[in-house]
């Protein structure tokens, strides 16, 4: 499933970039992330609890940062697996600034497997949107708090 979109954050680009590349912040951006620990260069192990009302589950996985070209581009690769299958996201973030605001363009792909893929397809579009919206909402909040 392709994911692409643009979000505007009311903060300068350097700041947004710093947030997006800081593992401690990423842990707060990823919805449901409970734990994030280093596990190699630019790679982190994560524990997540993803909850959509009744549907909830614990995931473990990795977060990897790559293609880091401050302050304009970086790539985030998230893998996760749990009892209902796996969900792997991989996407590039491109940041541009205008009038003190940062536009974040993201483009990537989400691969899900197992139970989530075969029963969740009806809800997948909406769920992905929700997670992304949450991610950027958290980012906005972090930026505001800086």
């Amino acid at each position: 499933m392709k994911l692409e979109g643009t979000q505007t954050i009311s903060a300068p680009r350097e700041g947004v970039y710093r947030l997006l590349s800081d593992p401690a912040v990423i842990a707060r951006l990823l919805p449901g992330c409970e734990k994030l620990e280093p596990a190699g260069p630019d790679t982190y192990e994560v524990k997540m609890k993803l909850g959509l009302a009744a549907l909830s589950g614990s995931y473990q996985g990795t977060v990897k940062l790559s293609e880091q070209r401050p302050p304009e581009h970086l790539r985030l690769t998230v893998t996760s697996r749990g009892p209902w299958g796996f969900a792997d996201g991989d996407g590039g973030f491109t940041l541009s600034e205008q009038g003190g605001q940062t536009t974040v363009h993201y483009a990537g792909e989400l691969k899900v497997g197992g139970m989530v893929a075969s029963i969740g397809s009806r809800l997948l579009d909406g769920a992905a949107r929700m997670v992304i919206a949450q991610f950027f909402k958290n980012l906005e909040r972090e930026a505001a708090a800086e």
């Binding site: 497997g113 139970m115 893929a117 075969s118 029963i119 009806r122």
Partner: peptide
């Protein structure tokens, strides 16, 4: 099946 080989119609729901 999606291009990764996941069966998207995996239950009578779909």
């Amino acid at each position: 099946y999606d291009e990764n080989g996941q069966l998207l119609t995996g239950e009578l729901m779909d």
